[in-house]
Amino acid sequence: MSTNELKGWKEIPIGGVIVEAGNSARYETGGWRTFRPLMDGQLCKNCLFCWIYCPDSAIEVEDGKVKGINLRYCKGCGICARECPAKAIQMIEEAKVSAGE
């Protein structure tokens, strides 16, 4: 956040209260990643282990099916890849993926 976006003391709620629930969704932690999870939809059996074990609420599930990985939040820990029984997720070095993009 740049300094000019910072609000003055008259503009913010008192007491340090944050009134917008879950607004950290606007804060992206994807930049922390050194490895990126790549999912092979063919191999995925939608067991949802990746989803339940993700520390960053980054696995997107719709109707009980994995839709993808939200790279805005994914920090690249690789738990999903390690716990995937179908070996459907590969961790690729971020630098290599980015270079290919």
Partner: peptide
């Protein structure tokens, strides 16, 4: 900002760093 208003969830007692602590003390 009552906590018991679960329809409008608020957060009390966040970590307030160099960017906002002074503003809250000024208040």
């Amino acid at each position: 900002y009552p906590l018991l208003n679960i329809k409008q969830p608020v957060t009390y007692g966040p970590l307030d760093l160099q960017d906002y602590y002074s503003e809250h003390k000024r208040q």
